[in-house]
Design a protein around this nucleic acid. Structure first.
Lengths: 201, 201
DNA sequence: ATAGTATATGACAGGGTTGTCATTTTTGGC
DNA sequence: GCCAAAAATGACAACCCTGTCATATACTAT
């Protein structure tokens, strides 16, 4: 947690530091991100930084928390908005929402992606501790299984792992191309494959 | 390419350096691997290293090449061994072979995995330049499509991307658990899902 | 044995990183 | 205006890293 001195700062300065952190963490993985860069971008001295935060982890946690607030507001409401959508529609809704959001706040999104790619001890633990997206998908899938919409001999956890993995793949792979339409199509095709299989019947 | 001085070394010393490189590159991604570690493990001086290799890239390339020789020998013969297997059987065959190999030479396998995870410029380029596994899978799939075994409205490239991605996921995710039986089951289940879909018909 | 070549070495320069701390500056209350 | 408390600062120690280079050692062939 940031120290009091940080929260005593006026809003503009807090924001400037937050933005510098976002900038850095959206370009490099946590393990490679440099506080030197952050302080440079924020226009504060190295000494000041350590008066605000304990260390890089502290700053990272703070940054994620800030972003998390916005993120959950936008993406986390699939259940509310589409109460009786099936799993596949639910996922696509989520996917579209995430994509919109990634267009609005690409840096935030990149941080999330880099976090998934990071294999440092700290970030791995962190990821394990907050499996929101994963659990939401799993819940949706299990509901559909109970409703008999999904074959009951599949392993729900594995299916969600699969979709989660492919989701990340889609976003990383096609992120740079910046072609929302094409990306959405790919996602739909992926879902259709998971849903129907690829074998000719 | 390593310098002449390296190839002039007696076999044992070459091997020791190779093994030190394997050790390092199987623990850290290329971008994070340290030559200091390599020279320490190999028991040579820093100066000597640069008498043998231009730099870290040079050593990495050499290491991959050495490993590649063995790898292709074991895994790359799916076509020969199972000439009329379908795509799914072919994949599972490959998967099992890869798994066997990863048990025999876990360090080599880890290097491959870390390479997939690396996003440094150099490694990305390198990966693009040698898409053996990817192309083999794609070839097998296209053959099956021509034979009418696969729905012809699916995008072969995408399907292979999916399987490739999930393959990597399976191996990274369950690597540490070291439970071959369970891992193989998961792979089979993944393939079954891709093949049949998960929706109740 | 000697001369010349090939190889081995570690100190070095120059770059990066983090976290600390004595000192200076700013701020706010009286 | 003054003073104490809070905040800002950058130099510093300590630790990484890479690639070079002058020097020392070993080898080889005459």
């Amino acid at each position: 947690m940031p120290k009091d001195t940080f929260f005593n700062l006026d809003g503009a300065k807090q924001k400037k530091i937050f933005e510098a952190a976002v900038d850095e963490f959206s370009q490099r993985r946590f393990s490679e991100a440099s506080i030197n860069q952050v302080v440079k971008n924020a226009g504060i001295s190295r000494g000041s930084f350590y008066q605000y935060f304990d260390n890089k982890e502290d700053l990272y946690l703070y940054t994620l928390k800030q972003i998390g607030k916005e993120k959950l507001n936008i993406i986390g409401r699939v259940g509310e908005l589409k109460p009786d959508a099936d799993f596949f529609d639910g996922y696509m809704y989520m996917f579209r929402a995430a994509l919109e959001w990634s267009t609005a706040k690409p840096e935030y999104y990149r941080i999330g992606m880099l976090m998934e790619l990071d294999d440092s001890r700290f970030v791995s633990e962190l990821r394990k501790a907050s499996p929101e997206g994963f659990l939401m998908l799993k819940g949706m899938l299990e509901k559909d299984m109970q409703l008999g919409r999904i074959r009951d001999d599949v392993d729900a956890g594995l299916v969600v792992d699969i979709i989660y993995t492919l989701n990340l793949y889609l976003l990383t792979q096609y992120f740079k191309e910046d072609n929302k339409a094409e990306l959405t199509e790919k996602a739909e095709e992926v879902i259709r494959i998971i849903k129907e299989g690829i074998v000719r019947k």
